[in-house]
């Protein structure tokens, strides 16, 4: 039996032990499944800078009281010291037994803020001044037993596709700011970022090739309904008289638009780079949804639809979001 082998075995045993006792060393760097319960194996405590300074002041007070042989002053120092050091237990209890049960992301397009709702649960005591640092953004929250324990955070969403939130810290300095108590969480969670919507996109390519013909024919159609104005609507479709009676602008919508079917073709958009095409298609899908036009999405590898409604739109946006990026 050779020595390196023994060392390897010992080392792996040591690692296994460490993983059992101190999950933060190994396991917590990996993704964990929900729910995540914060308990003593994964809660860490250190004094804050204020805690250290306060200790120094207590030490000076102690020396002063001892030097002057003044017992009441010493008792005062002991009281303050004991009260402040024992706050470590309260600080620990502020984070102990907090459970992260779920995370939910609100729909979000690249370039907007990604809103994530975290659902915490506490069983008995209310927790005050808990804090969470996700990607450098600090959020303060309280938890009450019996509440839904929802904490909403906003993160930057720069790119379409899957987005992790990575490992983040839940921490507290409650009650006196003398001890920093924290735990790392790395929940199994990804949010889908829909593609960026093109701003100032051209109107929907109704009828694809001859848009001219479409506008002349539209005038003869019957007015079907009025709907709210969207910034991309042509000015001439605004129902001025009807709008005057309301607070918002209204747009005339014609029957003929409903029966039509729109094809949003990725390869038909010439002269644009890949991301710009995705942005335009995403915008058009949204426009078609607001305009209640049935549409299908044709991508290089697959086709969706035709269809209409939030589910269809979300499916389209999802496909667009997950399109592979431009080949390098």
């Amino acid at each position: 039996m050779n020595t390196p082998n023994i060392i390897t075995i010992r080392w792996s045993h040591l690692l296994q032990f460490a993983e059992r006792r101190l999950p933060a060393l190994t396991r917590l760097k990996q993704v964990e499944s929900l729910p995540i319960l914060l308990q003593r194996h994964r809660i860490y405590v250190l004094p804050t800078r204020f805690g250290l300074v306060f200790s120094a002041v207590l030490l000076v007070m102690l020396l002063g009281a001892l030097n002057y042989n003044n017992n009441p002053a010493l008792l005062l120092t002991c009281l303050l010291g004991a009260a402040s050091y024992q706050s470590v237990f309260q600080a620990f209890r502020a984070v102990d037994q907090v459970e992260l049960r779920a995370l939910r992301a609100e729909p979000c397009n690249a370039g907007d803020a990604l809103c994530i709702n975290l659902y915490f649960h506490v069983d008995t005591r209310p927790r005050r001044s808990l804090r969470m640092s996700v990607e450098g953004i600090e959020t303060v929250f309280d938890l009450m037993p019996g509440n839904d324990g929802r904490v909403r955070i906003e993160l930057a969403a720069l790119q379409r596709g899957w987005r992790r939130i990575g490992r983040f810290r839940v921490w507290s300095e409650y009650p006196f700011g003398l001890f920093h108590v924290w735990s790392w969480l790395n929940p199994e969670f990804v949010a889908l970022i829909y593609p960026r919507l093109e701003t100032n996109a051209p109107p929907l390519p109704l009828n694809g090739a001859n848009a001219q013909q479409q506008t002349t024919r539209r005038a003869g159609d019957e007015l079907a309904m009025l709907r709210d104005y969207h910034p991309t609507d042509p000015l001439r479709s605004i129902a001025w008289k009807a709008s005057a009676r309301h607070d918002t602008l209204l747009v005339k919508q014609f029957e003929q638009l409903r029966g039509r079917e729109l094809v949003l073709d990725f390869s038909a958009l010439h002269g644009l780079d890949r991301e710009a095409r995705i942005a335009r298609l995403a915008r058009w899908a949204c426009l078609a949804e607001t305009g209640q036009v049935r549409y299908s999405l044709r991508l290089p590898e697959r086709q969706l639809g035709p269809g209409l409604g939030p589910d269809h739109r979300n499916a389209c946006l999802r496909e667009l979001a997950l399109l592979p990026g431009a080949a390098p």
């Binding site: 300074v53 306060f54 002041v57 207590l58 000076v60 007070m61 002063g64 009281a65 002057y68 003044n70 017992n71 009441p72 002053a73 005062l76 120092t77 303050l80």
Partner: peptide, 15 residues
């Protein structure tokens, strides 16, 4: 922090 010290020093005069 400073106030704690000042408070303690008051006891040096009257206990």
């Amino acid at each position: 922090c400073f106030a704690s010290f000042v408070l303690m020093s008051a006891l040096l005069f009257d206990s």
